[in-house]
């Protein structure tokens, strides 16, 4: 079984709002001191893939990333987690792609990789929060798309997928090949790379494929453009409650809630 996980490197979504800045000319976030990390939902996807692979030698997990120079770090990280290979789609002409364009290029990359049984994508990326690329890749490759999956098992020749619904869980059976978008759950918290993993990852060759390697001849236009990027200001005057002990503060809080008529 061959599994591909699409991985995006993004600005660390955990950086607090106070450290976050944007460049209004380029309409991009400013990296500043923040780290570039593997998109958290993509890490969950890698974890789902690695759990599905288990110890089976005939199951492989490949990571596929589209991006510029800083991506190497992300690729080494997912290799260190245990991916069998990582492929880098890199070309300057892809700098301005939107979700549609990214899906097109990733789909070409997946086709170029040969017979793939399962494609996994994080449900959305922590930068533009669109959540379209997974379903659009499924469209490009004519694959069934199962959204918000958090666990996948193989039973005989079928995949059994557990997915999140608005109020509960749905368990489905699907035939390969298919695509699933992955959400986080307690069962798929990403594993930390081992030291051995890091060493091996450092030595692995990462194939780099360009626009020409993928034989993309048509121009890929943006279907969606960014007009402006601004940081909203929240106006709340916070009042910190004083007190010697937690108990004292609690008493003050209770009084205030009553005074302000906030309790039903």
């Amino acid at each position: 079984m061959r599994i591909v996980v699409c991985v995006k490197q993004v600005l660390d979504p955990e950086i607090p709002a106070r450290d976050f800045q944007v460049d209004r000319q380029t309409k991009e976030a400013i990296q500043g001191l923040a780290a570039m990390v593997v998109n958290p939902y993509d890490e969950n996807a890698i974890e789902v893939a690695l759990q599905l692979k288990g110890n089976q030698k005939d199951r492989t997990v490949s990571a596929l990333t589209l991006g510029a120079e800083p991506c190497e770090k992300a690729l080494r990280h997912v290799l260190a987690m245990g991916c069998d290979e990582a492929i880098w789609l890199k070309d300057a002409c892809w700098k301005e792609l939107d979700s549609f364009g990214i899906a097109k290029v990733l789909a070409k990359g997946i086709r170029q990789m040969g017979n793939i049984d399962l494609v996994l994508c994080g449900r959305q990326a922590g930068d533009w929060d669109m959540g379209q690329v997974g379903p659009l890749i499924a469209g490009e490759l004519s694959l069934p798309c199962v959204p918000l999956v958090y666990q996948i098992n193989l039973e005989q020749d079928r995949l059994v997928l557990k997915r999140e619904m608005d109020r509960g869980v749905e368990i489905l059976e699907g035939r390969m090949p298919l695509l699933a978008t992955i959400t986080s759950a307690s069962s798929n918290q990403p594993r930390y790379p081992t030291v051995k993993g890091l060493v091996l990852a450092g030595r692995k060759k990462i194939p780099i494929w360009s626009n020409q390697d993928l034989q993309i001849t048509e121009r890929i236009d943006r279907l969606v453009t960014v007009e402006d990027l601004i940081i909203p200001q929240y106006e709340r005057q916070v009042r910190i409650i004083d007190g010697e002990t937690g108990a004292e503060k609690a008493t003050s809080l209770a009084k205030l809630l009553v005074e302000m008529k906030l309790l039903t």
Partner: peptide, 30 residues
Amino acid sequence: APILKIANLGIVDDYREVLPTLIDELSRIT
């Protein structure tokens, strides 16, 4: 914590020190 910048009222303390009394007080009041 960023939450303390956008709240209306904030308590900087371990919730374990605050909640029991808060629950008792509100229980009494309501």
